[in-house]
Write a protein that binds this DNA or RNA. Structure first.
Lengths: 145, 145
DNA sequence: CCATATTTTTAGATTAAATCTAATTATAGA
DNA sequence: TCTATAATTAGATTTAATCTAAAAATATGG
């Protein structure tokens, strides 16, 4: 539904990418990357576990958490927690960006950092290092092609 | 440390305020309001419980949650969950506003809705109903008086 | 290739925040 | 006062995530 990023990596490509980031490319990690870097859109740990249960011989819940945290440390993944849900979601979009929540479907869509401008008025007290933004509303259906 | 809002309400004033919002003014609720509406700044449920343990004969943890949720339903309180912490915080500022997190102290400061302008570019897909913003950074020390 | 050190994975226990349950207590209204 | 309704309570439960320590896999050095 959303536009693909670096989607569609072969296990070999994933493996090299992990190595370049100093992460041992184990079978479990490659499988999880297949999902979080290629297939999924803002998955939760539970989403990953369910995917693994279908697509991997046997994987512990702890491995899911170990792996996403390793990927985060390696700079391959980011985690977000939003006010409307208690589950952490993982995002392979590691560039500066914000989020839009479609309130009818619950879908979260990335918004490029360049596409949002935040202006702070009447405030000399703050040195702002970064901003986290969640816009909420409805998604407009595109017409035609 | 932060500037007071409607701080300093007597038990009678709190009681009337609860009644006006269709909430039975019980001893527990009045006590909790004393704290969340008058004394505290973005308290967590745990903060409320700890305060109650010092200032109220005996209060169950369930009552803390029951009460804040009742106050939220009644429109007297809002809840916020931020990405940097897993605890829900409660805020008696029910007007449109955003937040600033002082990363050195962990303090959260309200920013009036009018003081932030959010501009969305290159995006025709979204009908934005509301925005949640958390700015992070450092608080500048005010000089002199 | 082998021996061994290091790293990863695992099942199950644990933690932490919040909610639920069902019994007790308080309150409101006739 | 009597009775219905609402609120409070202790403790159990749920949920997301982490921790533990044993087992399995992998890397390294000769």
């Amino acid at each position: 539904m959303a536009e693909p990023r670096n989607r569609c990596l072969s296990p070999q490509e994933i493996s090299r990418r992990l190595e370049r980031h100093g992460v041992q490319p184990t079978a479990q990690r490659i499988a999880i990357c297949q999902y979080v870097l290629c297939e999924a859109e803002h998955p939760t740990a539970d989403d990953i576990k369910q995917w693994a249960d279908k697509n991997f011989p046997k994987m512990s819940r702890a491995t899911v958490y170990n792996t996403v945290n390793t990927l985060i440390e390696a700079g391959l993944l980011r985690e977000f927690r939003f006010p409307h849900d208690s589950k952490t979601v993982y995002d392979d979009n590691i560039s500066d960006h914000y989020h839009f929540l479609d309130e009818t479907t619950g879908e979260i869509i990335d918004i490029d950092g360049k596409d949002i401008e935040i202006k702070l008025r009447n405030e000399q007290r703050f040195i702002v290092k970064n901003a986290e933004v969640l816009l909420r509303g409805k998604l407009v259906k595109k017409k035609g092609v």
